[in-house]
């Protein structure tokens, strides 16, 4: 066990280094940061000087090592566009992204779980079929399109919800939250729904198939035979048994929600890290891009590591490779 963890930790370190290295390889190709930092009238000589100063003329390995060396000491550099330390910019925006992601996941679960249970218990009913098809329509449109349509209907035509931003936020320590104000709630609903739409469909379908499987197991049949009420069987036994795999997958999806909420954040001008990253791409702001990618990598590595550890503990079959090696 200890050696497994150690090995995985070392591997994770290598993954992070590889991410940073690939990131630096690609920065050469996404545009010129300098042209976004100077006005039209700036001479070429001055541009060249700035490029030199930013270290953009150094070979990629040098730039990479410099970044890694600094990052190891907690210094992620200064944003080209905003002139501020990148770690501070990201830290300021992380609460917005986390709040949105968790909220999206909660909405997805609140709608997805009951629908999943219903469609799983009554797969033949027409209402179930309707739910299944409607849930598919929701994910058959690109996110940006869904988002703008929602804005058009609920923000512009009905005037019910806020069309952009986070609303009024409250500072609690280093954390900021929009959930303590009316405007904050009005702001989070649409982006969270948009972001959670895919997960909602996903969870609903997952629960449905797990439910259908569990309902056919002997364990439920025994429970029925013992005369336990249907309600108790459905929720006390069946649902509980489906939740373990669902929780695992939901946890894994949370990572991708946080990482890829970029589109939603852009459409709703949600001031999170995804929006920052997108702006950084459009201005070739290398320090922000590299740090963001590293952050996402840490997130994924951590989640994968946890999941693998859980599997390792729970499911001995997946340990087979270890056994084989030992033998």
């Amino acid at each position: 066990m200890a050696s497994f963890i150690l090995r995985r930790l070392i591997q994770s370190g290598i993954v992070l280094l590889a991410v940073a290295m690939i990131a630096f390889l690609m920065f050469r190709f996404i545009g010129d940061p300098v042209s976004q930092m100077v006005g039209q009238e700036t001479t070429l000589a001055e541009r060249a000087e700035l490029r030199e100063k930013l270290g953009l003329n150094d070979p990629v390995p040098v730039q990479f090592l410099r970044f890694v060396g600094r990052a190891a000491t907690g210094n992620f550099g200064i944003s080209y566009q905003m002139g501020q330390p990148v770690d501070r910019l990201l830290a300021e925006r992380l609460p917005a992204t986390l709040e949105l992601s968790v909220f999206a996941m909660i909405i997805a679960c609140l709608i997805g779980v009951p629908l999943g249970v219903y469609t799983g218990l009554h797969p033949k009913r027409w209402l179930s079929r309707l739910f299944l098809v409607v849930s598919l329509i929701g994910i058959s449109l690109p996110t940006f399109f869904t988002g703008i349509m929602l804005i058009l209907v609920f923000g512009v035509e009905l005037g019910l919800l806020s069309t952009f931003g986070r609303g009024e936020t409250t500072q609690i320590g280093w954390w900021t939250t929009g959930l303590l104000s009316v405007s904050g709630w009005k702001s989070i609903i649409m982006p969270a729904f948009t972001l959670g739409l895919f997960q909602m469909t996903f969870i609903m379908r997952l629960i449905r198939s797990e439910m259908m499987e569990v309902m056919r197991t002997d364990f439920i049949k025994f429970a029925r035979a013992r005369g336990i009420s249907e309600g108790k069987i459905n929720f006390g036994h069946a649902l509980r048994n489906t939740l373990v795999p669902v929780m695992t997958i939901v946890g894994m999806q949370l990572g991708s929600i946080i990482a890829f909420g970029i589109i939603t954040e852009s459409v709703f001008q949600w001031p999170g890290v995804g929006l920052l990253f997108l702006q950084a791409i459009s201005t070739a702001d290398i320090p922000i891009m590299s740090t963001y990618l590293l952050l996402v990598a840490v997130l994924f590595v951590a989640i994968n590591l946890t999941v693998d550890l859980l599997y390792y503990v729970i499911d001995p079959r997946l340990r087979a490779d270890n056994v084989a090696r030992g033998a």
């Binding site: 290598i14 991410v19 690939i22 390889l25 190709f29 996404i30 990618l293 994968n304």
Partner: peptide
């Protein structure tokens, strides 16, 4: 681990990378 690395990069970054490399 290659899978892990791959999952870290949003497809837009991958697209920009491939575009840039192939152009050069």
């Amino acid at each position: 681990r290659v899978v892990d690395i791959q999952m870290t990069f949003p497809s837009i970054m991958v697209a920009l990378l491939i575009d840039g490399i192939s152009r050069s």
